[in-house]
Design a protein around this nucleic acid. Structure first.
Lengths: 170, 170
DNA sequence: AATGAAATCTATGGCAA
DNA sequence: TTGCCATAGATTTCATT
């Protein structure tokens, strides 16, 4: 371990560097507002950023067509709809197999809400949400049966402290 | 391992069992529609479920006050706003320490988008999104400096296959 | 990007089943 | 209790400047 006498002062965080189509300060404001409340009206957004509603409408439209905003969604409490169990499942893939087939098999399971391709001993990590522990067992069994999956490692989530936070808490 | 000669037919998935205030079929439809498009107008929703706009308005309002719908959010492509690196960070907590303090410290880092309390060797798993690898290093350093954190284990996400899927793909 | 205007939508109170 | 109707007020979304 590299010696670390005093806590190194953290690098000043790089601000989102312009990707291509420049996102100006107003756009960033709009993104923040829409992430906080995806149903905010254009009129409301206009008030907050100090532009007219049509101007906001156009900007948001551009953010959508540019693929910056990929959609809008209602955030639903999982337990309120019977999904009481969350788990993270690491997938240890056996050998070099057809990745496409594995992805198809995993995406066929609606319980798999998130799927990340990862570096490390686990080739994928999945976030799974199911009604109860037996359903989790079913899911693990199903995943282990997928061609190319050698083993899985499941971590049960005891509680979700937060999820999908956007706020640049500064 | 319990022998299981032929692929066990998966348990028929338990449908979301009524939590308390019963969520009927129309409510489920509304939830699905709003998860797919959080900005759908009440008029549009009304068309889709075959009710009047006021009726839909009332139902959605109830779902909100009941805490089933906890909010609405725009889905933003992270890389479009400069967040090019995603990682999952497992937190191995040292001993029995003040959990509240740890949570506060972790939530003070806006890069930590998700935070799950987990069973297993890792007491927490975090999903972190940052601009680049140096920023990831900073984050790992910051997390390791948190009182109560003994060690961290970071898994870099190579690509996000999907995230926040709701669709009961049936 | 602002203005103004027409079409649409929201949201409430009252009424019916 | 739940949904529908009517309506006043907002909002969206043009065309124009």
């Amino acid at each position: 371990m590299v010696p670390r006498p005093e806590g190194p002062q953290p690098r000043p965080h790089a601000l989102p560097q312009t990707t291509e189509d420049d996102i100006d300060a107003v756009d960033e404001q709009l993104l923040a507002l829409l992430q906080a409340n995806g149903r905010a009206s254009y009129a409301e957004l206009a008030r907050q950023v100090g532009l007219s509603a049509p101007a906001v409408h156009e900007r948001v439209g551009k953010l959508e067509t540019a693929g910056v905003i990929t959609g809008y969604t209602a955030v639903v409490d999982p337990s309120a709809v019977g999904l009481g169990v969350t788990a993270l499942v690491g997938i240890i893939d056996s050998d070099e197999v057809d990745d496409v087939g594995m992805l198809e098999a995993m995406s066929a399971l609606p319980q798999v809400q998130d799927c990340w391709r990862t570096a490390g001993t686990e080739g994928y990590v999945l976030k799974v949400r199911v009604t109860d522990i037996p359903a989790l067992e079913d899911t693990i069994n199903a995943l282990n049966r997928v061609r190319g999956v050698s083993r899985t490692r499941t971590t049960v989530v005891l509680s979700t402290k937060w999820e999908g936070r956007h706020g640049r808490t500064e």
